[in-house]
Design a protein around this nucleic acid. Sequence first.
DNA 1: TTGTAGGCGTTATCAA
DNA 2: TTGATAACGCCTACAA
Lengths: 356, 356
Amino acid sequence: MTKAPTASDVARRAEVSRSAVSLVLGGNAKKARLSDETQERIRKAAKELNYRPNAAGRSLVRGRTETIGLVIRDLDLIGVDPFLLPLLKGILEATRDQGYRVLVESIREGSGDPFGDLMDSGRIDGMIVENPNYGDKSLRRLIKSGRPVVVMGSQGLKEEVSVRIDDFKIGFVATEHLISLGRRRIAHIAYAESGIYAVDLRFRGYVEAMRKAGLPIEPALVTHANFSMESGYAAMLDLLGATPLPDAIFATSDAVAMGAMAAVQDAGYLIPRDIAVASVDDISAARFFRPALTTVTSEPYASGKLAAEMLIELMSGQKPGNTSALVDTRLIVRGSSVEDYSDDLLQTAREIRATK
Amino acid sequence: MTKAPTASDVARRAEVSRSAVSLVLGGNAKKARLSDETQERIRKAAKELNYRPNAAGRSLVRGRTETIGLVIRDLDLIGVDPFLLPLLKGILEATRDQGYRVLVESIREGSGDPFGDLMDSGRIDGMIVENPNYGDKSLRRLIKSGRPVVVMGSQGLKEEVSVRIDDFKIGFVATEHLISLGRRRIAHIAYAESGIYAVDLRFRGYVEAMRKAGLPIEPALVTHANFSMESGYAAMLDLLGATPLPDAIFATSDAVAMGAMAAVQDAGYLIPRDIAVASVDDISAARFFRPALTTVTSEPYASGKLAAEMLIELMSGQKPGNTSALVDTRLIVRGSSVEDYSDDLLQTAREIRATK
DNA sequence: TTGTAGGCGTTATCAA
DNA sequence: TTGATAACGCCTACAA
């Protein structure tokens, strides 16, 4: 393992100047019109030496790193948040053809100015922030500074650029669906404590749907879990203690709903006959639970893709057309709310087999 | 937004030399014994200016980036591979206190020398490769070059440093478990086509357990899926066409098993009475399916942590004690194989409620 | 105990 | 059409 070859090495071998090498290999070959013959010689030399431009040197002089950060608030969520993987996929897909890399960072809470530190570390040109605490000081300051930041969800700042889903509508639609099935005692399990913007909006959607139907909100039927399926199970145990029982559950994440459904079934009740369940996300397992899970999509993949595209716009200096993109969601009705549900799994399976 | 402050700015403000700033802020304050008073002045100035050392400059002169790469073979897997998130979590946890950042990269297949390109791009100091194709040219070359690389799984090279689980044992243990329950016609669904090292090892474990029990391998009962639950569903439809039916399934991932279980249930058979199921991974949903899934853990979190630790050792120039770590796995018996199963969910739930 | 100078690899500017 | 040269921001000998 000798030292990596530098542009000078290439230049020497090709018998040209360093600048020529830089022009040709930096993609500006057209701008500075070098003779084809020279260009060829340079490329050949580079290949022979196995030369790769050094990112640090380049970033130093260009003032850009071609890297974006994906910031995750809490490392503990990473193990359980099913949103994250498709989000990451969307981001990677949208960035990789633009030549950007993705740095994944978790932020420690309350330690100085973590968002500013990362932003100005010279490692990234911009960042996407997933699932931030509402009102985080460090993040607010960063957003107000006008740096390239895209927030998933909203921090309620006029300067922010955000990708959101309509969490109010999600809560409303899911609850309304349950009401339309004749359910009256509809319980609510949030996927986290109040304080996260999306959590509260979904709750308000739930409240509004209930209000519109003239149904009361019973405090004993409103509770929250903690991201995990386990905590959904635990929350459901609480609800199963209510008298009379709820006849439906609106859980704000599939994970929580799955935990809750297990608790319902373990207690000997039938879904959806005794208790109907609707939730949010449409993770891949939702379709394979039995009964399959009625859910409102949360579109993490589309959100990630969109966020990355907006960030790239932002980093190129343009103000993006809209500073707040709203990703559309939709209700998918399955067996956890409707008895006689059947989907096209067989059809899907046939297609899969056909392509095997 | 004016330009970011540099070490020179800090030096000027603190009325010292650039070197002094570098020494104090670079963490070498002890080595060069500057007066406490001076150090304090420098720190104060840095704080006032909101100075952050530029990573590019630092990495250029140090020859290190303090960043590692996590390489994922195929972007499409990212959406469905439940292994990935806990793996990432393990890596992030192990690296962040060592001051390392994590760059997530996906590699395009067959285009030049992607592994070498990334390794020598000057963006990372080392990499962890997840789920590589066995025998990938570019990866093999990189490993042989002796650069700091940790492979998840194995490429069968003597130079490699790898973190593995005992895939043969996994296949053996799961199959043996089904046999011990009196099952005889045990089908096998691999989570991907033959050609991935782990896939074939698990199959060989299955074969060995069958052989040891004196059971024949029926080609009609051996098939494979394609990572997704959908494909597990499709594969199971094939198996349901066998006569007589299999009385057990060994699926090599929970995702595939979940799809298969849905197909079994949709066909009107009971699990485990008619068909017992065992698989691999223990993703969080495994415990909440009904029946809950019997599975052999694949320990992605522990693997990620270990891989990161080994990589850090490697990057510091030491040869790690063992170049091939084997992560222990264990069989978790649940309701998909044993009728009268019950677990401690209630207890867990109580604990969760107690800490709420 | 402090300051100076040189260089890391790249690119952009400007002269030739 | 090409080639010096001067940054970019940082660190580390080494000199003072």
